[in-house]
């Protein structure tokens, strides 16, 4: 069973570098990723740039609307994620509870339904 751990937090709490370059990964995050790897749970995970760099897109009546900023203006914003492979929700909750992001923000645990790649036969338009 795959779960996504969505890490939400208040960006003002995150140390920033003056030139906007992403700060180095701090020791707790490295240790956490290491722990996920050692348990065979780690599938992937990424940090996201600050939400001030986000751009949102909506298409309505064939018009593409582009707005500055994230989908929702909230104090706690999505800052990164992990995708983990766990036996069940209890394992995923344990993994979420160890995430450094849970110490200052919120880690949302969502089961992943998956998105099968279209097969060659099933999608005439691809690769052709």
């Amino acid at each position: 069973m795959r779960y996504m751990l969505l890490i939400y937090g208040d960006e003002s709490q995150i140390p920033q570098t003056p030139d906007g370059v992403a700060p180095e990964i701090s020791a707790p995050w490295l240790e956490y990723t290491d722990w996920l790897l050692s348990r065979g749970m780690h599938e992937s995970g990424e940090r996201l740039a600050l939400s001030s760099s986000a751009t949102s897109v909506r298409v309505r009546d064939a018009d593409r609307l582009i707005t500055d900023g994230p989908f929702a203006e909230t104090k706690e914003v999505l800052g990164g994620y992990y995708i983990v492979e766990c036996a069940n929700l209890d394992e995923a909750l344990e993994a979420a509870g160890r995430c450094p992001g849970a110490m200052y923000g919120t880690v949302e645990v969502r089961p992943i339904l998956g998105m099968p790649m279209p097969s060659a036969a099933g999608s005439g338009k691809s690769a052709g």
């Binding site: 036996a87 069940n88 929700l89 209890d90 645990v109 089961p111």
Partner: peptide, 14 residues
């Protein structure tokens, strides 16, 4: 079903 809440008695630490 969807979040796979396990059918078990939790381990001693939890």
């Amino acid at each position: 079903r969807d979040a796979a809440i396990p059918y078990r008695v939790p381990e001693s630490e939890e």
